[in-house]
Amino acid sequence: MQTNPEKDTDLRLKVNSETARLPWRELEKHFAQGNVVWIANELDLVEVAVRISHDDKSTITQWMANGQLAKVSDQQALDWQAADASLWAVVVSPFILVQQDKPTKH
């Protein structure tokens, strides 16, 4: 699938501007509907959102096979609730993509 690089840049800027930190408690109702997707820290949240919006099935399938992209598990939800966690989030309808803070390097 060919994408227009200029349009892709615009989409990246739009997605980046819509990315925000949200408390898990505000995402729980979406989790209950099965619409919250976890993204591994080694992936870029904006890049994943762009790939999903382009319906890039091969890349998405690869990430899922590598355990880098998955629906949020019940255990993750319980852990985030107990920790009163805040997550980076962006909406790619109908999904909300979430990512924990990346560990800082000392």
Rank of each mutant, 00 (worst) to 15 (best):
M64C: 03
K102L: 08
A82K: 00
N4W: 01
N66H: 10
L45V: 12
S53Y: 12
Q75H: 10
Q68M: 04
E47V: 06
R21V: 04
H30T: 05
H106D: 15
H54D: 11
M1S: 12
V98P: 01
N16M: 06
K71T: 15
P5K: 01
L78D: 09
L43A: 09
Q99S: 01
W88H: 08
W38G: 01
I39C: 14
A65V: 07
D79H: 04
V90W: 05
L97T: 09
P23A: 14
A82F: 00
D55H: 10
K102D: 05
A77V: 00
D74P: 12
I60L: 14
K7S: 10
L27C: 06
E28L: 07
P103W: 00
E42Q: 06
V15N: 09
W63T: 11
A70G: 11
Q62E: 12
D44Q: 10
V15C: 07
L13R: 15
G67C: 03
K57P: 02
S58V: 13
D8T: 12
W80Y: 05
D55R: 15
V37I: 15
K7R: 09
P5I: 04
K57G: 07
S53L: 15
S58G: 07
V50E: 01
K102C: 01
A40G: 06
H54L: 06
T61V: 02
Q99F: 14
D84P: 10
A70R: 13
H30L: 09
V91I: 08
Q62A: 10
N4C: 07
A85R: 13
P94F: 07
Q2E: 08
G34V: 06
F95Y: 10
K71L: 08
Q2L: 11
V15R: 14
A82S: 05
H30I: 03
N4A: 03
I60W: 00
P94L: 03
L22G: 02
L22M: 13
L87P: 00
K102F: 06
K57Q: 09
S73F: 10
W80H: 00
V91R: 09
T3K: 01
A70D: 14
Q62W: 08
D8C: 03
E26L: 15
E28S: 08
K29V: 12
W80V: 01
G34P: 04
E28H: 11
L11D: 09
I60H: 03
L87W: 11
A89K: 02
L11R: 08
K102I: 11
P103K: 04
L11Y: 13
Q68W: 04
M1F: 13
W88D: 05
K14N: 05
N66C: 03
A83Y: 02
A83L: 13
S93P: 08
F31Y: 14
E42K: 03
K105D: 00
D55L: 05
L78M: 10
K105E: 00
V72S: 02
F31W: 14
